[in-house]
Simulated scan of single mutants.
Amino acid sequence: MDRYSELVAFLQSARSRSFSAAARNLDLTPSAVSKLVARLETRLGVRLFVRQGRTVALTEEGQRYLPSAEMVVEAMADAEAHGEALGEALHGRIRIHTMLTFARHQIVPWLPQFLQAHPGLSVEFHIAPQYEDAFDKGVDIAIHSGALPSSSRVARKIASSRWIVCAAPAYLARHGTPRTPDDLQQHTCVGFSFVSEWNVWPFRAMDGTTYGVRPASVVDTTQGEIARDLALGGFGIVRLAEFHIGEDLHAGRLVPVLESYQDPSKEPLYLVYPNRKHLSPRVKVFCDALTERMAAQPWAR
């Protein structure tokens, strides 16, 4: 009997509050997740969830059982990490959950050199614009920016990056340069199509107060890389992270606008990993390489 699968199904269902959502995260069917949880409940002799239509909620017994289940799953991951350390050479696959913009501009440039130095390693990217807890699906680390949801995971700040309002010189030559944030309403802007604080562009007023402007975007996208491509083509004005467009700014392909109103605050970049005592050697060597490169903040020349 695979008791570990029962625990993973229980934990994922507790976090997502849905057997269907848990099934998607685990690449199982909802009925399979329901059966795993039911089998666990039968073995324990208690109900762990209250079924409420399409959602589930932990019972009092389920809430008491949750910390123990988390400890067991983390201990299993810890044991695997120790097992990997028994071999002399680094080997295995590193599964990374991150944004397309960060993967393409801050990992891919040095990844071939890293893999050449560690021929026993391979990398698998799980790309999403926002953070999600995918560790129960086999992800080893996550790299994301901005506010993270409260959880038992370990989040370590590895860098920080400004957001820059900018456009291509060709666009500004055709349409003029906005002089105040309110002028953005008369310009073509590109935003994000998901609910995010990134859709409100913060600016600093002359008196030092900060206020937000939500431009009327002509195009919305889930991927910042599409917004960058549109901006580079002279389509409109964007607000993107400096780690994403730093090279474009330095080369003059994109030009900052409204600099006197620029919000000086920086958004943190986090390295997230499961709450365990020991990272596996294959993951640790990657995290060390990433941290070293992020400390230099190569985009902020």
Results as ranks from 00 to 15, higher is better:
Leu48Gln: 06
Ile158Ala: 06
Val283Lys: 00
Arg276Phe: 01
Ala32Pro: 02
Gly208Ala: 15
Thr59Trp: 03
Ala103Leu: 12
Ala231Asp: 03
Thr188Tyr: 05
Phe192Met: 05
Val154Leu: 07
Gln185Glu: 06
Glu60Phe: 11
Leu40Cys: 03
Val123Trp: 05
Trp110Arg: 03
Asp220Leu: 14
Val213Arg: 02
Phe19His: 01
Thr209Glu: 11
Arg15Phe: 01
Gly120Tyr: 13
Ser196Arg: 08
Val165Glu: 01
Phe235Lys: 08
Val219His: 05
Gly236Pro: 05
Leu258Arg: 01
Pro149Arg: 15
Leu269Arg: 00
Ala289His: 07
Ala38Phe: 07
Glu225Met: 14
Arg214Thr: 08
Arg276Pro: 00
Gly92Pro: 06
Asp248Thr: 06
Thr222Lys: 05
Leu58Val: 05
Ser18Thr: 11
Gly53Cys: 12
Asp133Glu: 11
Glu267Pro: 08
Ala142Ser: 14
His126Ala: 08
Tyr65Pro: 02
His175Thr: 10
Ala159Asn: 01
Leu40Glu: 01
Val200Ala: 15
Ala128Tyr: 13
Leu90Lys: 02
Asp78Met: 11
Met206Arg: 06
Gln130Lys: 13
Glu242Lys: 13
Gln52Val: 14
Leu172Ser: 13
Val219Gly: 04
Arg162Val: 03
Gln52Lys: 14
Leu44Asp: 12
Ser13Val: 11
Gln52Met: 14
Pro202Tyr: 09
Ala231Arg: 06
Ala77Val: 08
Ala231Lys: 04
Cys166Pro: 08
Glu247Thr: 07
Arg293Ile: 05
Arg17Gly: 10
Tyr4Trp: 11
Glu259Ala: 15
Pro268Trp: 10
Leu184Trp: 03
Pro169Glu: 06
Ala296Lys: 13
Asn275Ser: 09
Pro268Phe: 12
Val72Gln: 02
Pro298Gly: 12
Val190Leu: 08
Glu70Cys: 07
Ala231Tyr: 04
Pro178Lys: 03
Cys287Arg: 12
Gly176Val: 14
Asp229Cys: 10
Ser193Ile: 02
Gly208Tyr: 15
Ala168Lys: 07
Ala9Val: 02
Ile237Tyr: 00
Gly53Ala: 14
Leu240Asn: 10
Ala89Phe: 10
Gln130Val: 15
Cys166Ile: 13
Ala227His: 00
Val257Arg: 06
Gly146Phe: 09
Ala216Gln: 03
Ile226Ala: 14
Val213Tyr: 01
Ile127His: 07
Pro112Cys: 12
Ala134Arg: 13
Val165Gly: 00
Pro256Gln: 05
His278Glu: 15
Gly236Thr: 05
Pro264Gly: 03
Ser122Thr: 15
Leu66Gln: 07
His250Glu: 14
Asn199Met: 09
Val190Lys: 01
Ile141Gln: 07
Leu269Ala: 01
His244Met: 05
Ser160Asn: 14
Val123Leu: 15
Thr42Ser: 13
Pro169Gly: 01
Ser20Lys: 08
Lys35Phe: 06
Leu40Phe: 03
Leu100Lys: 10
Ser196Pro: 10
Gly45Asn: 12
Ala23Gln: 00
Lys284Gly: 09
Thr29Val: 06
Leu258Gln: 00
Trp198Val: 07
Asp140Gln: 00
Ser196Asn: 12
Leu66Asp: 08
Tyr65His: 08
Ile226Pro: 02
Pro274Met: 06
Glu292Gly: 09
Glu74Ile: 05
Gln186Ile: 04
Leu26Ile: 04
Ala32Gly: 02
Leu36Thr: 02
Thr55Ile: 10
Leu58Asn: 00
Glu6Val: 03
Pro169Asn: 04
Gln185Thr: 04
Gln116Cys: 09
